[in-house]
Design a binder for these strands. Structure first.
Lengths: 145, 145
DNA sequence: GGCAGTCACTATCATTTTGCAAGTGACCCG
DNA sequence: CGGGTCACTTGCAAAATGATAGTGACTGCC
């Protein structure tokens, strides 16, 4: 963004991406969801350089998506937990995952199952008002002012 | 990714992000959806450097999310259109937008209205199987092999 | 008490990507 | 023929990323 007057800052997509707009951040969130909450777990799972991981973690923390919590005083050990905002972002990751599976999905891929039914989760984005999947009904844009 | 064996390449989120995992790519898709299909329109709307835009456009094109189409021979003019894969990504952008509005939404923001009902679209990610919003039911992970 | 080992980083530097500014080629319009 | 627009490319500076090494706080073992 940061370019056009009738658009600058009024785009909610951009607002979202300001906080999580890079690949590592999203993968970190995904791993924390999987239960990899500690620095060393994240580092080895992601194969990310330590300085980069540290920066991503503090960015996510500044952005309010995760929180550092000390779970042991001696030795001093911290874990990173999702905040409400971070948890709210997870469905988006699942939607991205569904897209990735569809359009870039060679080989066997990991997936989520509904714990109760055992069925593979199939994420779709719908409009709460109509219940219809987004894309199935024509939309209009509305810009402020 | 590219780090852990039990995970390398099997994560659908990562597969998705391989193709669109950066901010500009997503904003380009959003703008094309808005009808800004030409290079110059995108450049001024996004305020992006011309070389960067060119690179993003060819990456998106290589990734199969957009297509370059010549709409005029003389003068030679092209536009960029969404492919099916690109269109399928739009609901994710709307979900990101909804998240951005909720957690980073100061001031008046642009939005989508349902063309028929006129109501503001409220995107949510649900599981098609159960119809329940993702996050409202416990899930399990399943890894290949 | 000394030494290896783990965890969670920081520091340093090379490489890569991004971004700005200027230029270029094809074309149209007067 | 001289602007002007569109769609870029080129060259270079600045910023982000990534590899590697090192550091401090501890634990656990002999």
């Amino acid at each position: 963004m940061t370019g056009d007057e009738n658009n600058l800052g009024t785009c909610p997509v951009d607002r979202g991406l300001m906080r999580v707009g890079d690949r590592w951040s999203m993968l970190v969130l995904r791993d924390i969801e999987r239960g990899l909450t500690r620095y060393e777990q994240l580092r080895t799972s992601l194969g990310i350089a330590p300085n980069i991981l540290a920066r991503r973690l503090s960015a996510l923390s500044d952005g309010g998506l995760i929180e550092k919590r000390r779970y042991s005083q001696r030795p001093p050990r911290d874990e990173y937990l999702l905040t409400d905002a971070g948890r709210d972002f997870l469905p988006i990751l699942m939607a991205i995952g569904a897209w990735g599976r569809k359009y870039n999905g060679g080989g066997a891929l990991a997936r989520h199952l509904d714990a109760e039914t055992g069925e593979a989760v199939r994420p779709v984005v719908i409009d709460t008002n109509t219940g219809a999947p987004i894309g199935s009904r024509p939309l209009r844009f509305e810009y402020p002012e």
